[in-house]
Design a protein around this nucleic acid. Structure first.
Lengths: 348, 348
DNA sequence: TCCCGAAGTTCGATTTAAATG
DNA sequence: GCATTTAAATCGAACTTCGGG
């Protein structure tokens, strides 16, 4: 390993001068160009790379951000992670990725590990969260800028980035209504997900505005589950039940894309063609939605942008901490966007 | 920040003793239980956490593994990453995740950053790789245990974990053949992907064994592309072309699941029902495959296990380096597994 | 000799204070 | 005082050496 002292020896200057030159520190003003050149050449020649451990020890900075996902296998994660990665890259931070698997013990262990690594910020992807959020209490005192994606927080020390679920729910129903659908079935989210209730509120508000009556027998609820994939299976089962009821409906509004996929399968298997006989709309716009047959009409969450936004928030937070400014939490609610594809069409 | 000296002061012992006790170093044998207890209590009371920067500086260890993905948005990544994460967790390593976006400059920058962080090993997920692998030359000299997943390597200093593509290709065709299909269309992978040719070899071998003649007019090639999603679109287009040719076929063997999805869409749109009129088989078994309508028959790569396997290899490598053993590269070829679902069925 | 504990050095870079001409 | 350079202290933990009982 070549150290700064090796460069000092090679160039004929002291390690102090080398450090000043290579970091272009304020004092570098006083150092003549010749000296600089000689030092740079020596560093170049030896292939000197500063030891980050030593640097971090001194500066107390890790240039690292912790990313904590509650369940990687949720297709929701991929694009958010991409947004996070890309934005961090531009700020020269590196992400440490942890997956909590929705387990409390894992959450605690990982949090401890990340804190030990002196992450400068934390981004939590709590898309499908069934843990007590109070766990984050430990964080509040740590003064590490933290942002949560996909989960509204009461706390005032943790920032959040979420989609506007109410607007999204409204959009979804409005879309179906504008296509002429009046008998609409619903699959709502599990109560413990923070998304569920505002999303449904948006639906209800839209219904009221349109003068649409909601048939309570066409409203199903996804069960609680720690597994995002269960959303598919439950969507499937609930739709089978809906079909069995023989209460006609021409459209189905699913809680998310996964349950929409489950619904499409149930309908198809029952001989109901989508969208000819029944329209289906989802929520999220996961990568698969565009590839599905039929491609899925859905309310998109701008996931990549949300990841980027969270990074923006915590990077600001980091800078705030460095400058000893008091930084308060930011709460962003981003607008969803309706993506009309093949799975919905107007009633004849 | 509470340091080891604070604990020393609080407990009334020297920092040496504290270090020995808290690390349970060999010398701890000699230290009476009372002393230990007092020190532990003091550490507990102050909430002492050793500074990892200092520790790393001394030990030259980061307990960190670099994970480099060539394109996160490839659905192939998710499960592999899960396997990597989970296995690293058990070994108490933390992963730094980087996504190269299939760009050379990004690869170089990230590699440099990871090396600067003194990662103890590197895992490269090169599923959809269009970069010159020679770039890894820099790595060979660095003596960092490295494993590539999804890409066969000529190099002897880098380990690899791949699925047995030849066996997989064989399986796929055998499945279709056993269902009675004789007129089969093929979508092959792009030549620059290392998977393509062995996979096709397996298909050809199987054909030979079965005495099946391959109709060259039913064989299409995916174009080169840096984007894994393009596989879907190309699969779609190529299948449209196949249909346009009006050369009948009762089954289609796609290069991967994405192209299979594209094929299913093209068939469905053309009024060809899958699997009633045409069976479709994919390769990979990405998460979506089970959720598709119809669910996709495919040749599964045990992705989670492959991730775990790569971690196993590099962790062995790390231990080898620590013990100054000379460790040579390991090359694992894991067996694929046929997953029969709805998209294939026997000809009547 | 065995047990216990402390003083001092090392890891590598940054920074403060100070010494040159 | 100014431009130029550097010795020495610092960051926090771990290890080597040594001394007293």
């Amino acid at each position: 390993m070549v150290t700064i002292r090796d460069v000092a020896k090679e160039s004929g200057f002291s390690s102090t001068t080398v450090s000043i030159v290579l970091n272009n520190a304020p004092l570098a003003r006083y150092i003549p160009a010749v000296t600089k050149k000689r030092i740079e050449r020596a560093a170049q020649k030896l292939g000197y790379r500063p030891n980050q451990f030593a640097r971090s020890l001194r500066s107390k900075r890790s240039h690292t951000v912790g990313v904590m996902v509650f369940d990687m296998t949720d297709p929701y994660c991929t694009l958010v992670l991409r947004g996070i990665e890309n934005t961090l890259y531009q700020s020269s931070y590196l992400p440490i990725l942890t997956d909590v698997h929705n387990e409390r013990s894992r959450f605690e262990r990982y949090l401890e590990m990340l804190l030990d690594r002196r992450i400068e910020a934390l981004i939590v992807l709590a898309n499908w969260l069934f843990l007590d959020i109070n766990l984050l209490g430990d964080l509040e005192k740590s003064s590490i800028p933290t942002a949560m994606i996909g989960c509204e927080l009461k706390t005032d020390s943790i920032s959040s980035v979420i989609v506007d679920n109410e607007v999204g729910g409204h959009m979804a129903l409005e879309h179906l209504h504008s296509l002429g659908h009046r008998k609409i079935a619903f699959i709502r989210g599990p109560k413990s997900l923070t998304d569920s209730s505002p999303r449904w509120r948006g639906v209800r508000n839209c219904a009221k505005e349109c003068g649409l009556e909601l048939d309570s027998r066409l409203i199903m609820d996804l069960p609680e589950s720690r597994d995002p994939m269960s959303s598919f299976e439950s969507g499937h089962k609930l739709t089978e039940e809906l079909i069995r009821q023989k209460r006609p409906f021409t459209a189905l509004l699913a809680f998310d894309d996964m349950s929409a996929f489950g619904a499409i399968r149930a309908l198809t298997r029952a001989g109901v063609r989508v969208p000819e006989q029944c329209s289906v709309i989802g929520f999220d716009d996961v990568a698969t939605s565009a590839l599905y047959t039929p491609s899925l009409t859905t309310v998109r969450q701008p996931m990549e942008a949300m990841g980027a936004s969270a990074v923006g928030i915590v990077v600001d937070g980091i800078n705030g901490v460095l400058e000893k400014r008091e930084i308060s939490a930011t709460h962003r609610k981003v607008a969803p966007e309706l993506v009309a594809r093949e799975s919905t069409r107007s009633v004849l």
